[in-house]
Simulated assay, not measured.
Amino acid sequence: MSHVRIEGLTKRFAGKPPTVAVDDLSLEIEPGEFIVLLGPSGCGKTTTLRCLAGLETPDEGRISLGDQTVLDVRGKVNLPPNKRRIGMVFQSYALWPHMTVRRNIGYPLRTRRVAREQARERIEEAAGLVDCAALLDRYPAQLSGGQQQRVALARGLAARPDLVLFDEPLSNLDARLRDQVRAQLHELHARLGFTAVFVTHDQSEALALGDRLAIMRAGRIEQLDTPERVFEEPATEYVAGFIGMSNRLSLRRAGEGWTVVGEPGADGPAGVPGPAVAGELPVPRSHGEVSARLRPDDLLLCPVEEKPPGHGVGLAAEVVDAQFGGRHMDVVVTIAGGRLHARAPLTGTPWARGLSRGQRVTAWFPKDTAIYYDADGVRTAAHAPAAPVGA
């Protein structure tokens, strides 16, 4: 285990204009902590990981692992990857096809010139940790995708590195295997307590694995906090949208109430007031326009002749599509031209089975499930978190 400190990390790629992939990023990782870098393609998460590994040379910054400085641009220090005591698990598995599982796992031990008997013990120990001891004499072509990924994980742990880096290691697995390997990885970290940085664009992986999440945007950390805090209290609208609050309503104050503002693609021009909002919103009077973010699970439907509960906020909507989801219907509706996703439970509301395109319904949500953001994408004062959030 090792304490990791990143200070002022900046990486630019040449071009017209040049691209700033990582922008003055600073981050401290405690020994044994599992940090997840989460964000869309192009946000800088993989470049940050590659700078940690020594596979990219930053333009500015400093990185230390424990007491050792592995990168200091000003001090002209830049240790190569094989001297950083780092294990890495790649998206593509990157197993040598001509080597057995035993030799693949032992490869980093050979590069570190670990004695043969000690290397044999570590190989068997690492294979046992990921439940692939019975595969040691097979070749990668004889393994399933899940088995190959477990071998790659064993290889990353065999040399007992100070830091293990994961570059979207589960993205090539099918859904069932992804869940299985993710659970094994979570259990393995709990048992061994290694320090880890895990890159992904999948919010489910991030929430399940991370001790803390770093949501990245344009090479910077937009929010850094525990999975629970990021999920329940996204600090900005960008974070809310990426962590699963995909439904967005633009709202404008109209007297004592609110109306939905038309979105591009509506019947009228964008920005024209749409249907009135039935219900009060917990937004300060100082805000004339806000954006409300909701998860699909929190947007519910009822027939137009029914009123939402007293704690609900209702909106006139039209059904675009309805798909059977087992115990619920996954429904797409339009409100003032904007498309939103709702989930209509079938238990207790059998009418939802008959939803059809063009049908008028009322979409509603409990007012405390939405989070409201101002024009700058920052949470309104009424919903600001109790403590500062961010890097």
Rank of each mutant, 00 (worst) to 15 (best):
R217K: 11
I29H: 03
Y373I: 12
A14N: 09
D211Y: 08
Q180L: 15
V101F: 07
M88V: 03
G193P: 01
A391F: 08
V260C: 12
G42T: 08
C132R: 06
V181H: 12
R220G: 02
G390D: 07
L153H: 04
T195N: 10
P17A: 01
G255T: 11
K76A: 13
A94H: 02
A352D: 02
E168C: 10
G265A: 14
A322I: 08
G255W: 13
E318G: 02
A278K: 09
S2W: 07
P108V: 06
A254Q: 15
L173D: 05
E121L: 12
A196W: 03
T111N: 13
G377Q: 10
A133I: 00
P161K: 04
P80I: 02
I105H: 01
P275C: 06
P345M: 14
A270Q: 12
P31K: 13
L52M: 07
F13Y: 10
E280H: 10
F242D: 05
H383R: 13
A158I: 01
E305D: 11
E280F: 10
G54N: 09
I335C: 13
P169D: 06
A154E: 01
V114G: 00
H186M: 11
T369S: 10
V4C: 08
L192T: 08
A21V: 01
P264I: 14
L251V: 08
A322M: 09
T362H: 07
